[in-house]
Structures are given as structure tokens and as C-alpha cells.
């Protein structure tokens, strides 16, 4: 599954997706090239917009980097959205409970997010290895549980003084917000964390025995077992690591962007991360640029609504088309390879 999608089909797909997007924009009554220009301008047109785009890139990249670990191990960790939410809950708990200065509480909140995300993913892992529950279903189920838990906490134990509202918890004290620079919403810490996650996964897959075991378990668990790979432990570690990174994404969302827990804290970023990783064909070096492209589309397409009166969901449509084309062209190639070889 690792090499299911190659670079060349990805290029063809981008081209095909652009053509279809232009047609769609034209059908929606917008001048297509001006619209695309507006998206770009909305995402990187000035420093503030670039900051917003980068801050949208960080959680997406963190979740996607974690997903690479699980996907390489052959685990369809679809529950990543739930792991992001769990991470946000963990970070919120720490931010609300732990007293003291920011330099104590912020690392604690980030660590709590990592732990919560890892635990949530481990639950899916144990369900798989011990309960025989496919990680897709276990992950989806746990995702709903995480979502409901967040909503319950917001309108229940963590409700704002006097009013219980789904608009979120009381904002955190400002000391525990991730520090920003230059009067924008950009947090250098968050960006460094995302880059570090990429570096960690890259090094892990390239130079460690654990990375080698992940690949072996992902490509052929039966052979891996015969070769002495502890398959269950490897699977659980992959889940913990992937979930930990998703949890960190949730913690960044809570402490760096929302500054509180809101029900839609993950906002589909986990699912979007799956698309990023599919498009990157599970290769970690491609995750950062593809996630940036997705962040540009997400942030920039807000302009379409403001300037052209198009619904901003057109950004999601463009992302979806792109991924569909990549999968379609990759799948089509695989099908033709197989036809040439097998009955």
C-alpha cells in the first residue's frame, strides 16, 4: 500500500483537478482565474494572512505526520479526528487545572494533549489486536465518543460561569496561550513543533529498527512475524505515536488558536489530514508542502465568499476533487498493472 500512489499520477491529478476546478468555478458563475487568484491572495496576500495560513497548516501537518506512521504500518487510522479532539480535551484540562506561569503550564498542556491523543489511538489499537475490531470502525466509533465527550464537558463540568453554551468553555488565562509574534496570530512554537514532527517521522522511518519494523508489518504482517518482528507491540506503538501527534495537533488548536475548548475544535482537520497523506503517498517529505497547499485553499477560499459571493465551501470541493483524481489515477494504473500480470 505504501507505493500505491506515485509522483507522476499525482502531477497528472493536480492538472486534471485544476481543469475540473476551473470548469466548476465557471459553472458557478465566477471568473475562474480571478477566483483562483483571490484564493491565493486571501491565503498569502499579506503578513496576517500568511500567519493565519501557517497556523492552519500546523495542526494539519501534525495530524498528517502521525498518520504517516500508522499508514506505513498498514493501519487505517481513520479515528485521527477523534484523537485530535482528545488532545484538545487533554490540553484544556491541563490549561484549566494547572496553576502557575505560562512556561510551566503550556508545556504541560501540550504534553497532556499528546498523552490524551495517544491513549485514544491506543484504545483503537487494543480493540484491533485484542478485540478483533477493524481499526476503521473502532476509530470512527471512538471519534464519536470523543466528540460527545467534548460537547458534554463544554455544557457540563466546564461550562462558562452562569451560562451553559455550545459556544465553548471560558477562554484560558492569557499566560497559557501559545505566544505569538509580530501582532499576528503566528506562534513560532507551533510551527517548530510541526517541523519537528516531520523530522521525527522522517528519521524514524529512515534510520531506526522501529521504522523498519513498521514498514515490514505494514507490507506483510505474516512475513514480519516469521522474521521475528513483535507485530502486536509494533502496531500498538504505531497507534500511540500517530495518536500522540494528532493529540498535539488538538493541543495546538486549543492553546494556540481557539484559546478554549469548542465542540468543533477539530473541524474536520483529522479527516483532511487523511487526504493529505493519501496525496503524499505516505511519504513524509511530501506532507509539509501538500498540507500547506490545503491550508492555502482552506484559508484563501474564505475570500471567495467575501469578494465573489461564492460559498467558501468551494475550497473543500477543490480539495476533494484533487484527492479523488489522485486516487482514481493511482487506482487506474494499479488496475492496469495487475491486468498485465495476473488472471
Amino acid at each position: 500500500m505504501r507505493r500505491a500512489l506515485q509522483v507522476v499520477p499525482a502531477l497528472w491529478s493536480v492538472l486534471a483537478a485544476l481543469v475540473v476546478s476551473v470548469i466548476l468555478l465557471a459553472l458557478a458563475g465566477a471568473p475562474p482565474f480571478r477566483a483562483l487568484g483571490l484564493v491565493l491572495d486571501g491565503a498569502v496576500g499579506d503578513g496576517g494572512r500568511m500567519a493565519d495560513t501557517l497556523m492552519s497548516w500546523v495542526p494539519l501537518t501534525l495530524a498528517a505526520a502521525g498518520l504517516v506512521v500508522t499508514f506505513v504500518a498498514g493501519l487505517w487510522n481513520i479515528g485521527v479526528e477523534g484523537q485530535v479532539i482528545a488532545g484538545a480535551i487533554g490540553a484544556t484540562w491541563a490549561a484549566r487545572t494547572i496553576p502557575g506561569e505560562g512556561f510551566v503550564v503550556i508545556p504541560a498542556a501540550l504534553a497532556a494533549g499528546v498523552a490524551a491523543g495517544a491513549l485514544w489511538a491506543l484504545a483503537a489499537g487494543v480493540l484491533k489486536t485484542r478485540g478483533g475490531v477493524n481499526e476503521i470502525f473502532g476509530g470512527l466509533g471512538l471519534g464519536f465518543v470523543a466528540q460527545s465527550l467534548a460537547t458534554y464537558l463544554i455544557i457540563g463540568p466546564w461550562k462558562r460561569a452562569g451560562i451553559a453554551s455550545t459556544s465553548g468553555t471560558e477562554p484560558f488565562r492569557e499566560e497559557v496561550w501559545l505566544p505569538t509574534v509580530g501582532g499576528t496570530r503566528l506562534s513560532p512554537v507551533a510551527v517548530i513543533l510541526a517541523l519537528a514532527a516531520i523530522a521525527v517521522v522522517w528519521a524514524l522511518l529512515r534510520g531506526t529498527r522501529f521504522g523498519l519494523r513498521l514498514k515490514a508489518v505494514g507490507a506483510n504482517p505474516a512475513s514480519a512475524r516469521l522474521l521475528g518482528v513483535p507485530t502486536e507491540a509494533t502496531i500498538l506503538r504505531a497507534f500511540a505515536l500517530g495518536g500522540g501527534m494528532a493529540g498535539l495537533a488538538g493541543a495546538v488548536l486549543a492553546t494556540g488558536i481557539q484559546h478554549k475548548l469548542v465542540p468543533a475544535i477539530a473541524g474536520g482537520r483529522g479527516f483532511l489530514a487523511i487526504l493529505v497523506v493519501l496525496l503524499a503517498a505516505y511519504r513524509i517529505v511530501w506532507v509539509a508542502p501538500i498540507a500547506l497547499f490545503f491550508a492555502i485553499l482552506s484559508v484563501g477560499s474564505a475570500q471567495l465568499q467575501l469578494r465573489l459571493d461564492l460559498d467558501s465551501s468551494i475550497g473543500g470541493v477543490l480539495q476533494g476533487i484533487l484527492v479523488l483524481f489522485v486516487i482514481l489515477i493511482g487506482g487506474w494504473q494499479a488496475l492496469h498493472r495487475r491486468d498485465a500480470e495476473e488472471p
Binding site: 523498519l212 514498514k215 515490514a216 507490507a219 506483510n220 512475513s223 514480519a224 522474521l227 521475528g228
Partner: peptide, 17 residues
């Protein structure tokens, strides 16, 4: 290739495992 070797892994990777 089904239960002895791992498709996609190299000779060096196999011997290392």
C-alpha cells in the same frame, strides 16, 4: 513473498530484520 519476504523491503532491510 506471501509469508517469507516483505514486498517493498530491500535485501539489506530483510537481513537487518
Amino acid at each position: 513473498l506471501e509469508e517469507g519476504l516483505v514486498p517493498g523491503l530491500t535485501i539489506a532491510e530483510h537481513l537487518t530484520l
